[in-house]
Design a binder for these strands. Sequence first.
DNA 1: CACGACTCCTGCTGGC
DNA 2: TGCCAGCAGGAGTCGT
Length: 279
Amino acid sequence: MPELPEVEVTRRALAPHVEGRTLESVAVRERRLRWPVPLRLHEQLAGRRVERIDRRGKYLLWRFAHGTLISHLGMSGTWRVWPREPGRPVPLPQVHDHIDLLFRAHCIRLTDPRRFGALLWSAVADGPVEGHPLLAGLGIEPFDPGFSGEWLYRLTRSRSAPIKQVLLAGDVVVGVGNIYASESLFRAGINPKLPARRLGRARCGLLAAAISEVLAEAIAVGGSTLRDFVGADGVAGYFMNDAFVYERAGQACRLCATPITRVLQGQRATYYCRRCQRR
DNA sequence: CACGACTCCTGCTGGC
DNA sequence: TGCCAGCAGGAGTCGT
């Protein structure tokens, strides 16, 4: 499922085909995503130029002069780039190919079988997109210089929930989903069940560093291959080849050979090594 | 405020 | 071999 690295990999693949280009038309075949896709999307966007494509957490922000198109990939969404060239037709849309953004030279296609994704419009007249209800409560970016052990420490003092669930909540730091939460906690040697407020400054420092490193490494290799994540260029990522704990229940820890433990936290699977993660 | 349960949806898994 | 119930999962929403 797309977490921050997969979204960032997607953003980088889209940017050269989208930034500074004029959107010719929008085809919406299925409006029923997490929230209904706006009815007037084509009228709002056709003939308008995408100035920039940014990422905030797991959201992609397609910035136009008159507003921002907000997209989220949910569990199973992908944006895929298809060239539009004479003699090489864009493939016919398949069942789950819900949206096409047509530029002169490319078709950017949203596929989302589970329809947990979103595509929303935020007009300039409604205020800065950063204040949109979906974005306003988000935590700091993990690559922001302000994200540190101290930040983690400060924002977890009032949190009694397990540290794994606080990471997933996204209001402290964004972009850490189920895979990278388990992997980051493993790297930091921290037990995922530990109440967040019981982490001291030292452990917060280790965890903040682990999160940034794990996410950066995942971006560098093109995102996770879990659930067939394929980048916008059609090339699969490699992170899962290197997972230390995720989906490795019962298998030997790569560091100490202890069988990896799987537990449920808030209806979600957490994987950890009970020997390596005792901090 | 913080937390946990519930919810959306479909592909995949496992049991028979 | 085939069918189908049950589960997983991001994150907003709601009740406590």
